[in-house]
């Protein structure tokens, strides 16, 4: 009996130790889970966005050259900016956007071989800016932009037309000398246009 009693007691101790070990392990895991959960809440990440919409790129093209045609030695020739022979530049871009216009105008035109030059000049009313985009200098309507303005100083309020196009018409004057060499004279007119951001 004593032996039996002793055996039962040992079993009881082992059971209690296992239960204690199990409880200990369970509680430790539980604690770890809480700590892990707690530390997981200690940081948050948010993703915002940067957004932008880029408008149409500006394009500039020389649609028609300022063509004086045949001129005579010693006889000045003038082309008005509303003449069919006026120079035409076409600008396209974002409708109604502000643009800066700068024109680099030549002081002379020259023969291809450079052997002679002919003076060319531009008055303070030789340009027009047509925001209706008709592209025809002879039909520019009053109020459709800026008429008879200085090609050396375009207005700061110039815009791309509501249809996405603006035309510039350019007149000018050539002054051949009395001994001007016969031949075809040319000169570059460089138009630079940039968005103002307005």
């Amino acid at each position: 009996m004593a032996e039996n009693y002793s055996t039962t007691y040992s079993y009881s101790i082992v059971t209690s130790q296992r239960l204690h070990q199990w409880l200990k392990t369970t509680l430790l895991v539980f604690s770890l889970l809480i700590v892990v959960a707690g530390s997981g809440m200690a940081q948050d990440v948010a993703v915002g966005q940067a957004t932008a919409t880029v408008l149409a790129t500006l394009t500039v093209s020389a649609t028609a050259a300022l063509a004086f045609g045949n001129v005579y030695q010693g006889v000045t020739s003038t082309i008005a900016n509303n003449n069919a022979s006026a120079g035409v530049f076409t600008i396209t871009g974002a409708a109604s956007s502000g643009i800066m216009i700068f024109m680099a105008l030549p002081n002379y035109v020259a023969l291809a071989d450079g052997s002679d030059r002919m003076t060319i000049s531009f008055s303070s009313t030789d340009a027009s800016v047509d925001t209706l985009g008709a592209g025809n200098p002879t039909t520019m309507a009053a109020g459709s932009g800026f008429q008879n303005i200085n090609p050396h100083n375009f207005p700061a309020a110039a815009v791309i037309g509501a249809g996405g196009t603006t035309n510039i018409y350019l007149g000018g004057k050539v002054l051949p000398t009395i001994d001007q060499t016969a031949g075809a004279y040319t000169g570059d007119i460089i138009l630079t246009v940039a968005y103002t951001g307005n």
Binding site: V45, A46, V47, Q49, A50, T53, V54
Partner: peptide, 15 residues
């Protein structure tokens, strides 16, 4: 610059 809609992510981490 070609026209169109451009985006980028801005990530904010607070701890």
């Amino acid at each position: 610059q070609p026209p169109g809609a451009y985006t980028a992510d801005i990530t904010l981490t607070v701890a």
